[in-house]
Amino acid sequence: MQIRILTLTLLISLSGIFTVHAEIPEAEIPSLFRQTNSLYAQGKYAEAVEGYNAILQAGWESGPLYYNLANTYFKLNNLGRAILNYRKAWNLSPGDPEISKNLEYAREGLRDDIAALPLSVWARARRAVILQFPLGIWIGISAALYFLTIAWLIAALLIRPLRKKSPLILKWLGGCLAISVVISIMAYSFYRTPGAIILQPTVSVRYGPAETDAAAFKLHEGTEVKVVRKKDGWLQIALPDGESGWLTADSLGII
């Protein structure tokens, strides 16, 4: 009985948040997150989805939040939204093994088997390096090295004994800074082309951005595509095998 009352109270408080979309202070997020986790643990997946979405709608995001939401969608057999949120989680926490494993497992349920064009050795190496950290971390590393280089230069200008060691240290700092800036630029360009996930069970990909254009092929829920262009509520998408076509924007969820 106590549990029922507790759950009811929680649901009422949550529903208040959901309808009003009030600003949730950061301090309250962990508590709301845990409460939503308990809904998940009780198998109340529909309510848990609302709980996680409430935090997102309040403007907060994190890898674990998207991961839990993805798990909940997976339990609701909503493969498209599950993969979409795993991918969002993965973008924020690319090194997280749990996200990678669940994403991989969810992808086993995909209907589309698209053979990706083979990547060159250089492209594979570049991808491996970029995915070591999220974009924000790479940019942060570049910024830190930049400030370190500036600070060292100022110190070397002001303190005469430091100048003797300056060329060697500057070589290292400058080298590291150049590498991190190059990786940051590559990472920015890697994440810039938005990915998207098919959310509908089956969609027809057309030759042009209109219903009158002929259907080129079909895609199924959960398949990941790249968004190349937008036009009048239509998105031009590209597949890893080089094919491309047009879809209505509501068929996709942007990562």
Binding site: W60, E61, S62, Y67, S93
Partner: peptide, 26 residues
């Protein structure tokens, strides 16, 4: 085989879409 369980902590929360490197101060 099944998915791994949910996480207990929301981790490092950030404002959605507000990347620090997009702020003018950065």
């Amino acid at each position: 085989k099944d998915i791994l369980y949910i996480k207990d902590s929301p981790g490092h929360l950030t404002r959605a879409g507000r990347f620090y490197y997009r702020r003018p101060l950065y």
